[in-house]
Simulated assay, not measured.
Amino acid sequence: MSRQTGPARPSLTRDDVLDAAAALVKQHGPRALTMRKLAAELGTAVTSIYWHVGNRESLLDALVERTVADLGAITPGGRTPAQRIVSVARALRRQLRDHPHLVAMVHERGLTERMFQPAAQALVHEVHAAGLRGARAAEAVRAVLFQVVGFVLVERNRERSPAQHPGDQELWDVPAAEHDPALARALARGPQPERLFTASVRALVDGLLAGD
């Protein structure tokens, strides 16, 4: 009599390997991605990982290529070029915040500019629709990209920083805010990143599209 076994495990695919690798990197960073740990996550042998993706360097290359492709999927939304530019900026910020370790890995392998190219091309289309051409259009595209990246870096730095003493609540009283009580209350509450980001990008875009 044959021994009863459980359901057969579906065959491992290259996409399965890349999904598991991306999850490890997203959770623990690129250094946590070892072939042995990946095989353990997938419940398979290390040799099976090699068969699907090659060595660790080949795995990293494949993961970076897929990350670049995934991060490039940005569809503008809105009725006007200005609204669509802001929507691209907001989508790019979300992507960078949602995949910090994967973005860092792309940067370390020298593919940052390629990663940003789809977003840049979407911005080019919208600044052309707004009537900008040549150097002014290039300046607008780069200004928006720099704003997004700079804002995300400041956000990440604030999130990783130790608790501040004194904090905003202690620092901002009515005299410090030049006797503007509403300003003092708002500054004491600390920043609201999503709202602040949208407001700053809108102001930047309005200025860029208005010209001199």
Rank of each mutant, 00 (worst) to 15 (best):
R109L: 08
S58T: 11
T198L: 08
V127T: 14
R158C: 07
D168C: 11
R79E: 13
I74H: 11
G6K: 00
Q192T: 14
V144A: 03
L60I: 13
T44L: 06
A89W: 02
G211S: 13
S58W: 01
T198F: 01
R185K: 09
E159L: 13
A120F: 02
D98T: 04
E113M: 10
A130Y: 04
G54L: 09
M115S: 05
Q27V: 03
L12R: 02
Q83Y: 03
E139F: 10
A184Y: 04
A140K: 07
L187C: 07
S200E: 09
E65D: 15
H165W: 05
S58K: 11
L12Y: 00
V68Y: 03
E65W: 14
I85G: 11
A82Y: 06
L63W: 08
L153S: 15
I85T: 11
A69F: 05
Q192H: 13
V53F: 01
A21L: 03
A137H: 02
T67G: 14
A104W: 05
G190T: 00
M35R: 12
L33P: 04
R3I: 00
P175N: 05
A20N: 00
R93W: 05
Q121P: 04
S48L: 01
P100E: 01
A21G: 05
N157M: 11
P193F: 14
E41A: 15
A177S: 15
S2A: 12
T67C: 12
P181M: 09
R195E: 10
D206T: 08
K26T: 12
E41L: 15
A40F: 12
A186M: 09
T13H: 11
A135M: 11
L38E: 01
R160L: 15
Q4D: 00
E41R: 15
E108G: 13
A119F: 07
D61N: 15
G29S: 08
P166H: 12
P118C: 08
H28W: 13
R3K: 07
G207W: 03
R14T: 10
P76W: 00
G190N: 00
A91F: 03
A122N: 02
A130W: 07
A22H: 04
L204G: 06
L60N: 02
R202W: 04
R93V: 06
S2N: 08
A69S: 10
G77N: 04
